[in-house]
Simulated assay, not measured.
Amino acid sequence: MTGRAADIKAAALALFAERGYQATTMADIGAAIGIRGPSLYKHVGSKQELLVQIMTATMDTLLANHRAAISGCDDVAERLRRAAEAHVRFHARHRLEAFVGTREIRSLEDPHDTEVLERRTRYERGFRKIIAEGVEAGRFQVASVKLTSYAILDLGMGVSVWYREDGELTEDRLVYQYGDFALQLAGAR
């Protein structure tokens, strides 16, 4: 992505988070980086394209972080901890992406909504698979594998709303505690 395209995407992200997708115009995005609205179309096809870029990049990063976190780890409890920690770390560091990704899913148009939802489903199933393996191995005890994966994901997503670098917890301490929470939710033994 060129420098100008990255600037446009960053401005769109900030404005979508602040005002919402529907209330943000291409002229607003252009003004935020000092380009007239019509000139923006030399760099990007549409506001929808910007939203899709933001949301697919977010999901692709989450999926890659998940794979990297659990790679080479055989212990199911440690894999769950690592996956949860990667999830929370992303949400602590990328609050705007997390906020837009959650709030603006309804603003995606077909076929983009399907593309993003498929990525979200793959991501959730990664957690579900770990939890199911833990249950099967007798390491986790849960009433519902799916509900447990949703609870872990929701906990992490909530971090993007309240966490601040200058707050009470360091990022590393926060991430570790949320790893513990994930293991507790899974009924780790």
Rank of each mutant, 00 (worst) to 15 (best):
R4G: 06
A10S: 15
A12S: 09
A14D: 10
Q22H: 12
T24Y: 03
A32F: 05
I35F: 14
R36Q: 13
K42F: 13
H43P: 08
S46I: 14
K47Q: 07
E49R: 11
L50F: 06
L51Y: 01
M55R: 07
T58R: 15
T58L: 11
L62I: 06
I70E: 04
G72W: 06
C73H: 10
E78W: 01
R79Y: 02
L80D: 06
L80C: 06
A83R: 02
F90Y: 15
H91A: 12
A92M: 10
R93H: 12
R95H: 07
L96A: 13
G101F: 02
G101C: 04
E104T: 07
R106W: 11
R106E: 13
R106L: 13
S107T: 08
H112W: 15
D113T: 06
D113L: 07
E115T: 13
V116M: 05
V116E: 06
L117I: 09
E118G: 08
R119Y: 14
R125M: 08
R128M: 15
R128G: 13
I131H: 01
E133K: 04
V135C: 15
V142Q: 10
V142P: 11
V142S: 09
S149A: 15
Y150W: 15
I152T: 08
L153H: 07
L155M: 14
G156Q: 02
M157V: 11
V159A: 06
R164C: 07
T170C: 06
E171S: 05
A182Y: 00
A182E: 01
L185T: 00
L185W: 04
G187E: 03
A188F: 12
